[in-house]
C-alpha cells in the first residue's frame, strides 16, 4: 500500500505560499511606511522642535542626559509663527489661487483636446495620445528653461510682435503671474488630458444619440449627458493638476516674479537660505493638511457614487 507522501510537507508548502501571498498584499503598505510615513513622522518631529545653531539645526526632541531640566522638548511655536505671519498666509492663499486658476485653464484647454482625441478614428487615437505624451521625454527642467527663451524681453514672442509692429516696446512677460500660468498649463496639460480621455472614450455614444433623438441639440446633449458622465475624469484630472501645482517650486522660481510668491519657493528659501528646518517643516505639514482637504472631498464623492 502506498502511503500518501507526507501531508505535513504539503501543509508546509501551503503555509509558505500563504505567507508569500500575505507578504505581497502588505508590500504596498510597507512601501508607504518606509518612504512616506517614516519621513513624514520625521518632518512632524522637526516641525515641533526649536531652531538652534547646530548641525542638524534643531533641538533634539528627547533629552536623556542626567542633568537635563526636562526630558521632552516640543513646541507648537513654529506653527503659530507660520499661521500668524501675514506673508506666509498670503503665500498659502496665493498658491491656492494660482493652482486653482491654472487648473481651470488646463481644464478649459484639455477638455476639448481630450474630446477630440476620444472622437477621432480609432486608428488615429494612439498617435494623438502619443503626441500628448512625447514632451515628457525631455526633462521637465529643460522645458521650463526653454519657456524663458520664448517669454524673455528679447525672446521669440516679443521679437515676433515687434517685427510685426504690433507693439513698439517689448512686453514684460517673464517674472509675472502670466508666465507662471503659461508654465503650469503647459507642463500639466497631459495630466488633465489622459484621465479625461479615458472617461470620454468609454462614454457610450448611443446615449448622445438618444439625447439627440429625444430633441436635444448638440449643446444641450453635451451639457446634459456628456459633461455629467465625464465628471469622474474631470475630477481626477483636476486633482492631478491642482495638487502638484499647489506645491510647484521650479515654475514659480524660474518664471515667476517676487510679488506673487508660491509656497514651494518659500519652503525652499526657509530650508536652504534661512536654514530654519523647524519652520519649513511646519510649512510642509500645513501644505499637506491643505491638500488633504480636496482629497477628502474626492473620497466622499466617490463613496457617495459607489453607494448609488
Amino acid at each position: 500500500m502506498n502511503k500518501t507522501p507526507g501531508y505535513k510537507g504539503l501543509l508546509a508548502v501551503n503555509l509558505s505560499a500563504r505567507a508569500v501571498n500575505r507578504g505581497l498584499l502588505w508590500s504596498p503598505y510597507l512601501w508607504l511606511l518606509l518612504f512616506f510615513l517614516a519621513p513624514f513622522a520625521i518632518v512632524i518631529k522637526i516641525s515641533l522642535s526649536e531652531i538652534v545653531l547646530a548641525s542638524p539645526p534643531y533641538q533634539p526632541m528627547f533629552n536623556w542626559a542626567e542633568d537635563a531640566t526636562q526630558w521632552f522638548n516640543g513646541t507648537l511655536e513654529n506653527y503659530l509663527f507660520v499661521l500668524r505671519d501675514r506673508l506666509y498666509l498670503y503665500t498659502f492663499w496665493n498658491s491656492i489661487q494660482t493652482a486653482a486658476i491654472s487648473t481651470v485653464l488646463v481644464l478649459l484647454l484639455g477638455y476639448p483636446m481630450a474630446y477630440a482625441i476620444a472622437r477621432a478614428p480609432a486608428d488615429k487615437q494612439g498617435l494623438l495620445l502619443m503626441l500628448v505624451i512625447i514632451p515628457f521625454w525631455t526633462s521637465f527642467l529643460l522645458r521650463i528653461y526653454a519657456l524663458t527663451g520664448l517669454l524673455n524681453t528679447h525672446g521669440v514672442i516679443n521679437n515676433a510682435l515687434l517685427g510685426l509692429q504690433l507693439i513698439d516696446q517689448p512686453l514684460q512677460l517673464m517674472y509675472t503671474d502670466f508666465a507662471i500660468y503659461i508654465g503650469i498649463v503647459y507642463s500639466y496639460l497631459p495630466f488633465m488630458i489622459l484621465p479625461l480621455y479615458a472617461t470620454l472614450e468609454r462614454l457610450d455614444l448611443s446615449l448622445v444619440d438618444a439625447a439627440s433623438d429625444l430633441g436635444a441639440g448638440p449643446l444641450r446633449s453635451f451639457v446634459d449627458i456628456t459633461l455629467p458622465l465625464s465628471l469622474p475624469g474631470i475630477i481626477a484630472g483636476c486633482m492631478l493638476v491642482f495638487i502638484p501645482a499647489m506645491g510647484e517650486f521650479v515654475i514659480p522660481s524660474l518664471l515667476g516674479g517676487a510679488e506673487s510668491p508660491m509656497i514651494g519657493r518659500v519652503l525652499y528659501d526657509e530650508f536652504f537660505l534661512n536654514r530654519d528646518w523647524p519652520v519649513s517643516s511646519a510649512i510642509a505639514v500645513v501644505l499637506l493638511a491643505l491638500l488633504l482637504l480636496p482629497i477628502a472631498l474626492l473620497r466622499h464623492y466617490q463613496a457617495k457614487e459607489a453607494e448609488q
Binding site: 457610450d204 448611443s206 446615449l207 429625444l214 441639440g217
Partner: peptide
C-alpha cells in the same frame, strides 16, 4: 437633424441615461 425629426427611437442597448432616474429619463 435628428433632434428636429418627428421620430423617436428605442435603442438596442436601450441607451438609458445612467445618471438620471426612470422618471427623469422619460421626462427628458
Amino acid at each position: 437633424p435628428a433632434h428636429r425629426r418627428p421620430v423617436n427611437m428605442m435603442f438596442q442597448s436601450y441607451a438609458l441615461f445612467p445618471h438620471m432616474n426612470v422618471a427623469k429619463n422619460i421626462a427628458y
